[in-house]
Design a protein around this nucleic acid. Structure first.
Lengths: 245, 245
DNA sequence: AAGTGGTCTAGACCACAGC
DNA sequence: CTGTGGTCTAGACCACTTT
């Protein structure tokens, strides 16, 4: 290997990308659990028959993608959905003072049903396929500010409807721990809409008030859509913050 | 240097970060212009008395920050605000079909005045300091969809008010070419608001319709705020897209 | 003390751009 | 052909965490 190491596989030329691909596949298949430490760089180098520098580059790219977290002196940890990550990667709503506050949730509804056409398209499942639909109202400082409708493909989350109103607040940790589904990326579409009566009542506002609508499609490690989330937010005392860089 | 290279300066320990700092400073001071090629890695290595690998790491981090664009075989180019970059980094509004369309602009107003309290705070200038205030209406497919109010500190953009209604569509290129101001980052705050009469008339909608309000503070290479932009968007046929990853 | 990732170096070859 | 950045390797030392 020290003398002939160019493109052993013709598919994905650079070695470090091939290694990355193999490691990501093993992550997705659950060979290591979130929070666990991967083998050390030297061990992986031996395992895959490449130099430590190549392993390092693969792991560095994976760290940039937040698939793993590197700790000097400890090792390389499989990223897990602690509250920290949910907060920093997936929560963009801030209070007037600029602080990010964790909302509490009340589950309004949690039932098994079938996918509507729009849901099916976004989740890449068949129209009419079984889905779980969850409705939540989310509170900040005891004020109801967000109405949220979540659609999950039932196939990926068997039995999740049995949680009913006892669904935990941080769903992504639940997905990861109990269903081996890691949310890796999400795409959001934002619009300004008008509150209808169904929004207005739980939020304690007038129908016709402006709301920020957020449609989120969340993707797993394989970039497959696994959750659809429609939120409507009262932005009188909240705003959505985005950093462009 | 080949034998004693640990922390020659006690301020910023890793060598590659020190090199990065020096290069960024030279970029900010205009030693190289946007679009120019930097000296090659080997030349920089000699210049700073470090190995090529260290220069490479510095340049790679700068490429990740979009300060610089690397071209295999050509060299390392100072990033410039072509339409591409403006589009991909700073334009988040998409049409219903998911395509990103370049809006045209009509300047409604372009005058020199003084900073209001809120503007002064966001731009980190004194209240009452001279500013340029620009009002634009932006069109997509000849439809007016966005009303935009821009505030610039007059000190950084001397004489820009003389452009009047002939201001170009892509302001960031103008900032960079004529005022040596490179927009590097921006922070946006989004809210849903209600159209007032001043919004409704140019947009051709009813007062009271929901609009997406975007407040953007744009920062230069030194992370100093240099532009404040308040946009109000009709999101009936547009949405704001954000990728969380 | 032992093991981990972080930094730095030096040298090799490859892929690509431009003359 | 020359020069550029891109990949890969090997080996050194440092900083940190854990035992």
């Amino acid at each position: 290997m020290t003398e002939s190491n160019q493109q052993e596989s013709p598919t994905l030329h650079p070695l470090y990308q091939q290694v990355r691909r193999m490691l990501v596949d093993r992550l997705a298949s659950g060979d290591w659990s979130p929070g666990e430490l991967l083998p050390s760089e030297t061990a992986l180098a031996q395992l895959y028959g490449v130099s430590q520098g190549t392993i390092r580059k693969a792991l560095d790219t994976m760290a940039a993608e937040r698939l793993v977290v590197r700790h000097q002196g400890r090792g390389t940890e499989v990223a897990k959905h602690d509250s920290e990550r949910s907060l920093f990667q997936f929560w963009h709503l801030y209070g007037e003072d600029g602080t990010r506050q964790i909302p509490s949730s009340k589950v309004l509804k949690c039932t098994r049903t079938t996918a509507r056409a729009g849901e099916a398209r976004l989740l890449k499942i068949k129209r009419g396929a079984p889905v779980i639909r969850i409705g939540r109202c989310r509170y900040i400082n005891d004020q109801p500010l967000i109405i949220e409708w979540i659609t999950l493909p039932a196939e990926r989350f068997p039995g999740i409807e049995n949680y009913g109103k006892d669904l935990p607040n941080t769903l992504y940790s639940l997905y990861q721990k109990h269903y081996r589904v890691t949310i890796q990326t999400a795409v959001e579409k934002l619009r300004a809409v008008t509150a209808d009566r169904r929004d207005a009542e739980p939020l304690g506002i007038k129908a016709g008030a402006p709301l920020l609508e957020i449609e989120r499609v969340a993707l797993d490690l394989e970039d497959e859509p696994v959750e659809l989330r429609m939120s409507r937010c009262d932005t009188q005392s909240l705003h959505y913050r985005n950093v462009l860089d």
